[in-house]
Amino acid sequence: MKIKVIAASFFLTLALVSCKKEDKKEVAAPAEEVKANTFDVTVELVIKKDDELILFYKDPSINYFDEKNTVYYGLKGKQEAQTVIFSIPEGVIPNDIRFDISSKKDQEPVKINAITLSFEGRTFRVDQKDLLKYFTPNEFIAFDETSSTATFLPKGDQYDPIFNTKPAIYIALEKVSGVKL
């Protein structure tokens, strides 16, 4: 009789454990998160020291670049080329951008290989040979067009190396965004 009770208890326990395992199998896996459809600015460059790069952007509701409309990207310096992707927040279509290429006064020269604008599968690539057609360096940058290298020129305590856009980039922004700006 004892053996029948033990055997019955064993089978009852086994049945309960099996049911619990089956319940666990029926739990649905969480749905994969849908990624935002953002306007991206990708910069391919060689930057040898750690730094923080900044992309400022404007949309038609903004008349000037401000701290609120920025994307920061901290990166580690390397001897080889790196890719930096600035993703502008979802729902914002830029009509102008500004690229702050360094925040470190002791940064070595930076070589820019390409800048690519992309949105919803449309892209526009600015190769190094065409960089000055679309962007202009400010007074804190000496830019060698042949090598596509930016050397930085601090002026006393001031240091703010920036690539501003030229009017030619606005046509590219319209084509990539699919929106008349």
Results as ranks from 00 to 15, higher is better:
F119E: 12
N69V: 11
L55P: 02
T38W: 09
R125E: 14
F65A: 09
Q158N: 12
I62P: 05
S61Q: 15
E67L: 10
K20Q: 14
D130E: 01
F11C: 13
Q158T: 13
L12G: 05
T146R: 08
E33D: 11
G91T: 04
L173P: 04
T165P: 09
P167Y: 05
T146A: 13
K129I: 10
T146M: 10
N63Y: 14
F124S: 00
K4T: 10
M1T: 06
K68L: 09
V110I: 13
Q107L: 09
F143R: 08
A15D: 12
N69W: 07
D157P: 05
F39R: 07
E139K: 07
S87I: 07
I101F: 04
K21F: 01
T123P: 04
T42I: 06
T13H: 15
L16R: 02
K58G: 13
K133L: 12
V179K: 12
E22Y: 10
S177W: 07
K24R: 04
Y57G: 01
K105E: 13
S61A: 15
R98P: 09
A31I: 13
I101H: 02
D144E: 15
F56G: 01
Y134W: 04
L12R: 07
I112C: 05
T165F: 03
F124R: 01
N113L: 08
V27M: 05
E108N: 12
V92G: 09
D51R: 03
S177F: 06
N63E: 15
P154V: 03
G178D: 13
K2T: 05
V179A: 02
L132C: 00
F163Q: 08
E26K: 08
C19I: 03
F11T: 14
S61I: 12
R98A: 07
I47F: 07
V5K: 01
V84S: 08
L12F: 13
I93Q: 10
F124C: 11
T70R: 04
V27H: 11
E174S: 11
F143T: 06
F10I: 09
K155C: 02
P161G: 11
K104D: 12
F56C: 05
P109Q: 00
A28K: 04
A150D: 15
V179D: 10
R125D: 10
D51P: 01
E108W: 05
